[in-house]
């Protein structure tokens, strides 16, 4: 196994070596499809093909050179037998497949025993090209079910609605909603669904790992013209007394600022009070006074539970 490829200039050579076997099994492919597959512009791809055309076996007469035709917009290749087998997986590609397979295996249910066995077999095969036992050292998982994501993708592409049960942690509630999924995105280490919530009649964002169950909704979703405007967040003053890293991470603050008194934004006072309570005094809520009073009240109420 070679080193991890760092020199991006060499990436072009690697791409050309991958291009030949791909063309050999995809004769007549459109240039546009090809450039998409390789993640380069059409212009770059044509430059690649022009370079390949100059390559071949020593002698470099038409008998030895790779022959390509791509004038018509579709690409055909001949006389490239020496390079026509795809190259061995490099270490990054092997790592990518090994981690992906391990993760896929966790996502399959027990009823998929034969697929699980196939995955295990593939892991062994790829692993055998490594000197060290890589699989026991690198491991990927996800808190989002791949089946859930597939259902959401389908619903986005077919513009259909789904019924979900959602754990709203900020309110400590589990509720059922009918939503029309619009888009999925990754922010930080979490994935989010942006959807029109029919139940709330407005656009909402849901964290994928908090969707507890999902089912296709057969009924037609009514189109809704009015969309609720987003409320503006309130700002709160806090003072970090201890566990600064935890505080910074919880409230998404800039860790490079060493200031202990900070301002944070929140849409709901009750969520903010709960979050600050969970720090057990390591964060002090300075203002506003109403929220501070609420915090003291809640703490006293909780203490009473221990006096009974």
């Amino acid at each position: 196994m070679g080193k991890f490829v760092a020199d991006t200039g060499l990436q072009r050579t690697a791409r050309l070596l991958n291009l030949v076997p791909f063309l050999s099994t995809h004769q007549g492919i459109e240039i546009s499809t090809l450039s998409e597959t390789f993640g380069v512009t059409e212009q770059q791809l044509i430059a690649d093909l022009n370079t390949l055309w100059m390559c071949g076996l020593p002698g470099y007469t038409p008998l030895e050179l790779i022959d390509l035709s791509f004038d018509s917009g579709s690409v055909t290749i001949w006389n490239a037998e020496t390079l026509q087998n795809p190259r061995a997986l490099n270490r990054e590609e092997s790592l990518c497949l090994l981690l992906g397979l391990g993760y896929l295996k966790q996502q399959l249910g027990i009823e998929e025993a034969s697929l699980q066995a196939s995955i295990e077999d593939l892991i062994q095969k790829i692993q055998s090209t490594f000197k060290s036992a890589f699989v026991s050292q690198v491991f990927a998982d996800s808190s989002v079910s791949a089946g859930l994501r597939a259902t959401l993708q389908k619903s986005i592409s077919t513009r259909s609605a789904v019924a979900i049960t959602y754990h709203s942690t900020s309110r400590d509630e589990i509720n059922s909603r009918v939503v029309r999924p619009l888009e999925m995105r990754v922010e930080g280490s979490h994935e989010y669904l942006f959807a029109f919530c029919q139940t709330a009649q407005s656009h909402r964002t849901f964290r994928l790992d908090r969707i507890e169950s999902i089912a296709h909704q057969i009924e037609e979703v009514e189109s809704v013209s009015q969309v609720q405007a987003r409320e503006t967040p309130l700002s709160y003053q806090i003072e970090i007394k201890n566990r600064a890293r935890d505080v910074v991470e919880r409230f998404n603050l800039d860790p490079s600022i060493s200031q202990l008194k900070r301002e944070i934004q929140s849409f709901t006072a009750s969520w903010l009070v709960r979050e600050i309570m969970s720090f057990g005094g390591d964060v002090k809520l300075l203002a506003p006074i109403q929220a501070r009073n609420q915090l003291v009240e809640r703490s006293k109420c909780a203490l009473e539970g221990y006096l009974r």
């Binding site: 076997p21 791909f22 795809p86 399959l108 996800s142 994501r149 389908k154 994935e191």
Partner: peptide, 24 residues
């Protein structure tokens, strides 16, 4: 690209609907 160059038709029908994603 390498997998697709092998000239083996992939059989997605044999798998359940899965959309795996690693967010690292």
């Amino acid at each position: 690209v390498k997998l697709n160059s092998l000239g083996i038709e992939s059989d997605f029908e044999a798998l359940p609907a899965l959309a795996p994603k690693l967010t690292q």
